[in-house]
Design a protein around this nucleic acid. Structure first.
Length: 820
RNA sequence: GCCCGGGUGGCGAAAUCGGCAGACGCAAAGGACUUAAAAUCCUUUGGUGGGCAACCACCGUGUGGGUUCAAUUCCCACCCCGGGCACCA
C-alpha cells in the first residue's frame, strides 16, 4: 500500500459532519427551480456494504451532485426494504429476532452510507419493515379489496417439502428450492390472496410505448414477453352426446379444418368426468406428476378419453384426449390439435397415431402431403379443404371465421395474456399482515381502516419449519369479528414483500404523513420520477408491480401520472468468481475494506472507473491503488500550488503558449465530462479525461501563470466533485474557497478556448495511414489534396502508380487511392 | 429451441455519426532518488520482422464472406461466452 498522501479518514469525517449540519441534500419543493427526481433501487440491509451496492449508489450520487451543480432541485431519497431479505434464515442463524436483526442492519447501512457521503435526503428515509409502512400497505389492500382488485382463491403454489412453506416464483431455481438445491418444488393447491394485475394487462402492455427511449429496450422486451398478449379465437367444440361446450383458445383459427382432436389439460374441470373409469388413476397420476415441477423436459404424454367433440366449423367429430402438455392456467385449458400446422401438436399426434391433415398451403406452393410430412408447416398461407374459407389467405380467413363464430354464437375473437394474477400470500413471519379476519358467520371480513395497522407480534418462535409462525401466536390469531363480534380467526398470511417495493418511492415524497400514504399535491410536484436506477434483475417483477400499483393509485384518484418513472437505467451486475455478487452466494467483496484502506473517495472513483455502468464487471481488487495514487497526485499538486494562486490576482500573460495549451485542454476536459453526464454516463471516460488533464497540467506547473493555475485548479476540483466529493471539498477549502461544493455551479466550457489551433489531417494511401498534416481549420479541399500528394512520406507509396481518386474529409482526412 | 446482450493487448477498457485501433488505468520491465526499503518521479510495453539509430515494413478488434476509397463500427453466415424465456396453443 502506498504511503498516505493525505489522511482520508480525517477528511471524510470532517466533511461528513459539516454536510450533515448543513442538511445539504434536503430537497425543497420549489416550483421556481428545475426539478429532478432521481431514485436508486431501494436497497435492503444485508449486513455488509459490498461493492455491488457501491456501484449502484455512486452512479446515482454522481448524477445527483452534477444536477445540483447544474441548478436542479434534486430529490434523491434513501430508504430500506426487507425485500430479498432471508429474514428467517438469518434470524435462526444469529439466534436473533428478524425485526431486531433488520433494524440493526439498517442502522449499520445508514452509518456506512453517511460515511461514504452519498447525497441522499435522509429526512425522507422510509423503512418498509416498520409498522407505519405496513399500515399503508394494508390501507391499499383494503382499497383494492373494495374494488375487487384483491381476491381470495384456491390456487397452485410452489411448495418446498423441506421448508414446508410456500415459495415465491423467484425463489424457485430450476424447479428446486433456493435453499435446498436438490429438493424438487411441488405444486400445492392452497387458498391464496391475489391482486388482479391482469385487469391492467392491456394497459401495462400498451403503455410500454410511452417508456420507449427512456427505458432500456431489453427491459421493455422482457415485459412484453411477460405480459404475453395473444390475439386469437375462442370457439366451442361440443360434446357429442350432450352438446356441452368445450371452449378452446387458438391463435390459428384459420387451421381449424385441420383439427384432428381436442386435448384437455389433466386439471380441466371436464377431464375427470369424461375419462373412462379405468383411466381415472392414470389421470390422477398425470395431475400429480405435473404438480412436481420437472426440471428437465417433460415427455409428452396423453390418452384418449373414448369421447368425441364436434368441430363447430365443419361438424366433424374428433376424439377428445387428455394431454400433459396442455396448460390449465393459460387460455381455456383446452386446445384443438392441428398437427399439420403446429409443432407440438405434430409431435403429440404422430406419437399417438392421430391423423395429420394439412389445410394451409404456402402462398406459392402446394399443400403438403401427409405421407411425406416431416414436421408442421406453421407459417401463414392459404386455406385449403376449409369449406367456404378455402382459397382465403390466413389473415383474412381468421377475420371471417371470427365473424362466423360470433354470428352463430359458438365463439368470438379473444385476447389472452400470459400474465397471471399476483399471488401475494406468504406463510412467513416477515411481511405485512393481510388485514382481514375469518369469521365463522360473516366469512372474510376486512379489518376496519381505523384499526390499522395490524402489526406483527414480536414474541414469535421462528423455526423456519411449518406454516406461518403467526399461527402459533394466540394473541394474534384470536380476535373478535369486526362485524358481528363473534370469535374469529385473524388471517395469518403476510404479504409478499414486493408489495413494499411497489410504491415506496411515492412515500418518499411525504415520508412522515400519518393521515394518508402521501399527499397527492406533493406527488404532483415530484412525479413522475425523472430517473430510476437499478439492477436489471428487477426487469419483470418489481418493475411490473410498481407500474401496476401506479395505475391502481391513479384510478383511486391519488396521483395523476400513469407511469412511475420516465427513464430507467439498469446498471450491470458485479461478477465475482464467475457468479453474480450476492450475499446468498457468499462471494461479496466488502467495500468497507477498500474504504478503510484508501478512503471512500478512492473506492467510489475506482468503481466508476472500472467500466461503463451498464456493463457487468468482473470484480478484481487490483487497480484500486491506481486511483489512490491519482487522487494523491492531485492533492499534492493542489496543496503545493494553493498559496501561489491564493495570492494571485489576474496577472500573468494569458496569451502565453503554456497558458493557452492548458486552458485548451481544460475546456476540452470540461466538454468531455459534461457530455458524458448529459448523455451516456460513461464515467470511466470522464475520469480518464480528467486524468489526461492532470497529466498535462503537472509538467506545466512552472510554466503557466498564477491566473491560469488558479483557473485550472478551480475547474479541476469542480470536475472531481461528483466523483470524489470529500477530497474535492477539502481541496476547495485548500485553495481558499468556501461553500458546499455540491452547490457550486458546474463549470461551462468555452468552445472557442477548447478549439485546437490547427487541424490534424490524416493522410492515407489505399486506406493505410502514411502521414499527417497540420493545417489551419477550414483549409480548402484542393489545398489538402495538393499537400497530401506532395508529402514526402506519402510519395514513396504513390510514385510510379496511378492515382485513381482522392477522398478528402475537411479538417480530418485525405485518402489517396492508387493502382499499379 | 426462441429472444436479448457481448467477444478488442498479460488484465479492466477506449475509439460517441463508417475515417489514426488500443486513450486512461492496472500489471510487468528498466532507470533516477535512497545506506536500504517504502513512497515519488522518468522511460518502455499489441505481435512479427528489419535497422547502429531517430525509425521503417507487414500483420492485428471471435471465424468466414460481403458492401465501401476506408469496417472494431454496416450487411450475411457461423463459433464461443453471459442473461432472460422455455410446451403460452
Amino acid at each position: 500500500m502506498p504511503e498516505k498522501p493525505y489522511d482520508h479518514n480525517q477528511i471524510e469525517l470532517k466533511w461528513c459532519e459539516r454536510w450533515q449540519d448543513a442538511n445539504l441534500f434536503e430537497a425543497k419543493e420549489d416550483p421556481s427551480r428545475l426539478k429532478y427526481y432521481l431514485l436508486e433501487m431501494l436497497p435492503y440491509p444485508s449486513g455488509t456494504l459490498h461493492v455491488g451496492h457501491i456501484r449502484n449508489y455512486t452512479i446515482g450520487d454522481a448524477l445527483a451532485r452534477y444536477k445540483w451543480m447544474r441548478g436542479f432541485n434534486v430529490l434523491h431519497p434513501m430508504g430500506w426494504d426487507s425485500f430479498g431479505l432471508p429474514a428467517e434464515n438469518a434470524a435462526i442463524a444469529n439466534q436473533r429476532h428478524p425485526r431486531e436483526w433488520t433494524l440493526e442492519n439498517i442502522a449499520y447501512m445508514k452509518k456506512q452510507h453517511k460515511r461514504y457521503g452519498f447525497s441522499y435526503d435522509w429526512d425522507r428515509e422510509v423503512s418498509t419493515c416498520e409498522p407505519e409502512y405496513y399500515r399503508w400497505n394494508q390501507w391499499f389492500f383494503l382499497k383494492m379489496l373494495k374494488r375487487g382488485l384483491a381476491y381470495r382463491s384456491n390456487a397452485l403454489v410452489n411448495w418446498c417439502p423441506e421448508c414446508a412453506t410456500v415459495l415465491a416464483n423467484e425463489q424457485v431455481v430450476d424447479g428446486c428450492c433456493w435453499r435446498h438445491e436438490s429438493t424438487v418444488v411441488e405444486q400445492r393447491s392452497l387458498e391464496q390472496w391475489f391482486l388482479k394485475i391482469t385487469a391492467y394487462a392491456d394497459e401495462l402492455l400498451r403503455d410500454i410505448e410511452k417508456l420507449e427511449g427512456g427505458w432500456p429496450e431489453r427491459v421493455l422486451i422482457m415485459q412484453r414477453n411477460w405480459i404475453g398478449r395473444s390475439e386469437g379465437t375462442e370457439a366451442d367444440f361440443r360434446l357429442e352426446e350432450t352438446g356441452e361446450p368445450i371452449r378452446v383458445f387458438t391463435t390459428r383459427v384459420d387451421t381449424i379444418f385441420g383439427a384432428t382432436c381436442v386435448i384437455l389439460a389433466p386439471e380441466h374441470p371436464l377431464a375427470a368426468r369424461l375419462v373412462r373409469s379405468e383411466d381415472q388413476a392414470r389421470l390422477k397420476a398425470m395431475v400429480d406428476d405435473r404438480a412436481r415441477r420437472d426440471p428437465g423436459d417433460l415427455v409428452k404424454d396423453g390418452f384418449f378419453t373414448g369421447r368425441h367433440a364436434v368441430n363447430p366449423y365443419n361438424g366433424e367429430k374428433v376424439p377428445i384426449w387428455i394431454g400433459n402438455f396442455v396448460l390449465m392456467g393459460y387460455g381455456t385449458g383446452a386446445i384443438m390439435a392441428v398437427p399439420a400446422h403446429d409443432e407440438r401438436d405434430f409431435e403429440f399426434c404422430t406419437r399417438f397415431g392421430i391423423p395429420v391433415r394439412p389445410v394451409i398451403r404456402p402462398v406459392d406452393g402446394e399443400l403438403a402431403d401427409t405421407a411425406t410430412m416431416k414436421g408442421a408447416f406453421v407459417d401463414d398461407g392459404v386455406c385449403e379443404n376449409s369449406g367456404e374459407f378455402s382459397g382465403l389467405p390466413s389473415a383474412e380467413a381468421r377475420r371471417r371465421m371470427n365473424e362466423k363464430a360470433e354470428r352463430e354464437g359458438f365463439g368470438k375473437a379473444a385476447i389472452t395474456y400470459r400474465l397471471r394474477d399476483w399471488g401475494i400470500s406468504r406463510q412467513r413471519y416477515w411481511g405485512t399482515p393481510i388485514p382481514v379476519v375469518h369469521c365463522p358467520h360473516c366469512g372474510v371480513v376486512p379489518v376496519p381502516e381505523s384499526d390499522l395497522p395490524v402489526v406483527l407480534p414480536l414474541d414469535v418462535a421462528i423455526t423456519g419449519k411449518g406454516r406461518s409462525p403467526l399461527e402459533n401466536v394466540p394473541e394474534f390469531v384470536n380476535v373478535a369479528c369486526p362485524k358481528c363480534g363473534a370469535t374469529a380467526r385473524r388471517e395469518t398470511d403476510t404479504m409478499d414483500t414486493f408489495i413494499d417495493s411497489s410504491w415506496y418511492f411515492y412515500r418518499y415524497c411525504d415520508a412522515h404523513n400519518d393521515k394518508v400514504p402521501f399527499d397527492s399535491k406533493k406527488i404532483a410536484y415530484w412525479f413522475p420520477i425523472d430517473q430510476y436506477i437499478g439492477g436489471v434483475e428487477h426487469a419483470i417483477l418489481h418493475l411490473i408491480y410498481s407500474r401496476f400499483f401506479t395505475k391502481v393509485m391513479r384510478d383511486l384518484g391519488m396521483i395523476a401520472n400513469d407511469e412511475p418513472a420516465k427513464r430507467l437505467f439498469t446498471q450491470g451486475m458485479v461478477i465475482k468468481d464467475g457468479a453474480k455478487m450476492s450475499k446468498s452466494k457468499g462471494n461479496v467483496v466488502s467495500a468497507d475494506a477498500a474504504a478503510e484502506r484508501y478512503g471512500s473517495d478512492t473506492a467510489r472513483l475506482f468503481v466508476l472507473f472500472a467500466a461503463p455502468p451498464e456493463k457487468d464487471v468482473d470484480w478484481q481488487d487490483g487497480g484500486v491503488e491506481g486511483m489512490y495514487r491519482f487522487l494523491g497526485r492531485v492533492y499534492r499538486f493542489v496543496t503545493r500550488n494553493a498559496d501561489r494562486i491564493r495570492s494571485a490576482g489576474a496577472t500573468g500573460d494569458p496569451s502565453a503558449e503554456a497558458d493557452r495549451r492548458i486552458l485548451r485542454k481544460l475546456h476540452q476536459t470540461i466538454r468531455k465530462v459534461t457530455e458524458d453526464f448529459e448523455s451516456r454516463w460513461h464515467f470511466n471516460t470522464s475520469i480518464a479525461a480528467v486524468m489526461e488533464f492532470v497529466n498535462e497540467l503537472t509538467p506545466a506547473e512552472t510554466q503557466i501563470s498564477p491566473a491560469a493555475m488558479r483557473e485550472a485548479l478551480e475547474k479541476l476540483i469542480l470536475l472531481l466533485a461528483p466523483f470524489a466529493p470529500y477530497l474535492a471539498e477539502e481541496m476547495w477549502e485548500e485553495i481558499g474557497r468556501t461553500g458546499p461544493l455540491c452547490r457550486q455551479a458546474w463549470p461551462d466550457f468555452d468552445p472557442e478556448l477548447a478549439k485546437e489551433d490547427l487541424a490534424e489531417v490524416v493522410v492515407q494511401v489505399n486506406g493505410k495511414l502514411r502521414s499527417r498534416l497540420w493545417v489551419p481549420f477550414g483549409t480548402p479541399q484542393d489545398d489538402l489534396k495538393a499537400k497530401a500528394l506532395a508529402d514526402e512520406r506519402v510519395r514513396p507509396f504513390t510514385d510510379g502508380k496511378q492515382v485513381m481518386k482522392v477522398i478528402v474529409v475537411p479538417d480530418k482526412l485525405v485518402n489517396i487511392v492508387v493502382k499499379g
